[in-house]
């Protein structure tokens, strides 16, 4: 057990945890940030995607001891001050069905659009293939990403 100071959504939080505890469980069980979801625990579904210094990572595959002083951004922090264009597009395009994968989808898309502001369909496919949606909301995710990309120009 060790003490970690983790900067999440701009706020430094102190947690006691085993070094190998995945950030996913630290967020959900120790910090009360349940917006980040568990879908597989093995890095295969992307439901747990958060940003670490602006890059998307799978929080179930990121040990708390590896976070260090990097900024963690979760779905709760993404639109805390003002909704991110992706969140707006998600609402407008009525993307969610059950909604359980959508935090991961949005966080992955947000990291992706930073790198690729004018994405082609093929680039969207490639980037978003990592995030599984069991409900099949992919067509609307695609539309919403394109709309947000336009909005962000």
């Amino acid at each position: 057990m060790a003490t970690y100071k983790i900067k999440v959504n701009g706020i430094t939080k102190t947690v006691e945890a085993e070094a190998e505890m995945p950030l996913l469980w630290a967020l959900r069980d120790l910090m009360g940030l349940t917006g980040t979801k568990y879908g597989c625990g093995i890095g295969s579904c992307g439901s747990c995607t958060v940003m670490l210094n602006g890059e998307s990572v799978r929080s179930c595959q990121t040990a708390i001891s590896d976070v260090g002083d990097k900024d963690v951004l979760t779905i709760e922090g993404l639109g805390a001050r003002e909704l991110h264009p992706l969140q707006k597009a998600w609402v407008e395009h009525d993307v969610p069905q059950c909604g359980f994968c959508q935090a991961g989808q949005i966080m992955a898309a947000a990291a992706f659009l930073k790198e690729t502001p004018n994405p082609t369909d093929a680039q969207i496919d490639e980037a978003m293939n990592a995030i599984l949606c069991r409900c099949g909301t992919y067509p609307r995710i695609r539309e919403a990403i394109k709309a947000a990309a336009k909005e962000m120009k």
Binding site: R28, D29, G32, L33, T34, G35, T36, K37, Y38, T74, I75, E76, L78, G79, L83, L86, Q87, W90, V91, E92, D94, V95, P96, G99, F100, Q102, A103, I106
Partner: peptide
């Protein structure tokens, strides 16, 4: 009509069973 839950879902506020946290709760 868009889903009434959309805003909660995209901000991480929507509460699923898995997100319930109670005082003194064990896992």
């Amino acid at each position: 009509q868009n889903r009434l839950d959309n805003l909660d879902v995209v901000t991480g506020k929507a509460v699923y069973g898995a997100d319930v946290r109670r005082e003194g709760m064990l896992y």
